[in-house]
Write a protein that binds this DNA or RNA. Sequence first.
DNA 1: TTGTAAGCGTTATCAG
DNA 2: CTGATAACGCTTACAA
Lengths: 335, 335
Amino acid sequence: MATIKDIARMANVSITTVSRVINKKTDGVSDETRERILKVMKDLNYQPNRIARGLVTKRTNTLGLILPDIANPFFPEIARGVEDTANIYGYNVILCNTDDRPDKEELYINVLREKCVDGVIFTSGINPVSEHIKQLMDCKMPFVLLDRYMDIDCLPGVYSDGYDGMYQVTRYLLEMGHRNIAFIAGPVHSTTAKHRYDGFKAAVGECGFSVDDALVEEGNYKISGGKEAMTRLIGKGKSFTAVVCANDLMAVGAMEVLRENGYRIPEDISITGFDDIQLSGLIEPKLTTVAQPCYEMGAMATRMLIKLIEGQAMDEREIKLKPKLVIRNSVKRVD
Amino acid sequence: MATIKDIARMANVSITTVSRVINKKTDGVSDETRERILKVMKDLNYQPNRIARGLVTKRTNTLGLILPDIANPFFPEIARGVEDTANIYGYNVILCNTDDRPDKEELYINVLREKCVDGVIFTSGINPVSEHIKQLMDCKMPFVLLDRYMDIDCLPGVYSDGYDGMYQVTRYLLEMGHRNIAFIAGPVHSTTAKHRYDGFKAAVGECGFSVDDALVEEGNYKISGGKEAMTRLIGKGKSFTAVVCANDLMAVGAMEVLRENGYRIPEDISITGFDDIQLSGLIEPKLTTVAQPCYEMGAMATRMLIKLIEGQAMDEREIKLKPKLVIRNSVKRVD
DNA sequence: TTGTAAGCGTTATCAG
DNA sequence: CTGATAACGCTTACAA
């Protein structure tokens, strides 16, 4: 491949001058010389080597996106929002799947550091991840937290308000007359799971009822977890008219088990989800859920990260988006 | 951040010696010196700068993954297969969404070149993309084609046999007694769409029937395309008992329109898809479709690419995987 | 076993 | 408007 030296030689100028035109420095080069250099560059199909440039500028124009699993339908939209936005500002994105495993998180943080990415967007399901966050802070790597809230102060991040979303959907269920409501929670160690559960409890409590602990089961935010939790719930033999699930995927799993056990949805049992992944509007009955603006979250986090990297002023370090109740057909009024 | 120089100075050795231990050269360093260097590296939390290394070794240990849209449910599994495999061999993956736009494909190919990725996995919906492939070949960038077949000879690639898959599912429909079968095709310019359509025609023809052109509509491989195509199909007023869709997403869209128009599936109309995305096993009725081993395709393509990069021998340059018919509940026998 | 020095392809500083 | 030259952090002959 041609290098800046080749161009310089062939255009009869110094590499400095070539560098000037590569970097579109408006002044310092005569139009004539510029044209000549541009032509040589074109003829040789020259591409400046960003690795070499990065070595001196300390910028790679590359971001790291650390998330649990791109195959989980919650994340592709986010990733798309991140990549699109990064692209607009001239950055690329390295994708990292951690499966929520601390060892993989650490591994990726290390190689992203070694590769000198300019910043990292971090979505972790585990808490405390303070170790890894500290790692990032120690090496002064700009980063933005996404979706999964950390119990540390003032870290830049974009979240959606799980408490509020769950409060809304639970209120809705209550207004529809439901009193015996089961809850399929997310993993105990996940902060989002905690926020959502708190929102559920708050709504129930506010209406003068209390949560029946026997009707609360933990899941893993996946379809399998929803199935297992629902199986346990049914096994207990306690009656309930509705199930609130901490995310859509578990709701889908729960629905399947419910149906296998002869329950009709929503005639016999109402169900709600959380996230509003694409799937939820496609299954039958269409799932009533809480929408998180995934694409927008990815985009906002990226914009925030780039501001951080480029040292621009930020309006706010912590953006909390209000999720929206999406009413479809999985909830029936009871009297 | 600490550099190799800092380590050398603090350990009282030359940078060459430090480099030796970084690169785990077994001989050439006494155990004692090695220990000393290792300790200093640990104390300073040293991470070798891969940018600098890449500049001299001409290797970045980074791959580019170019695909139309990670938010399309067909791709996350592939991406996961790619990333996992890359990770195993010590590579990272830069994600690029092109929306099948030639300008974005070109843009990404250029920046991936500038960033000196070691190789590229390319999934393009457009044909001919020969221009971009040529670009890749011109700069001697190792690449592997994934899923979308190119009409160029001998390019390394991993495909699934769309012809065969569509042939299988169409035969199945024929055996179930269907004679008036509509077809919702993929975009005309897509080679996979062509292969699938050919498989459909072959199966129909082989049974002594012919394809009614009026029952063939083109879609865009998305839900919206399935809806539109089905709307047009219904508008024509010609009768059919089954619809074969070139992918699952369009089948989902078609099902929705069918239902809106009062048709029951599969009682009134049978329908089939292609891809077997997760969604297909979750909707009601569960969709009969053709499974492509997405994760495995991503993994194989990556292994192939890495062999190419590392100059290892390859068993075959072109891997064609047989897709598998997945029979579920969206097809009814007619007599 | 260890070190010196050249070089990877750029940008940046300074001088002309 | 243009060019020498030193850096950037590392690997790699080649020498000692």
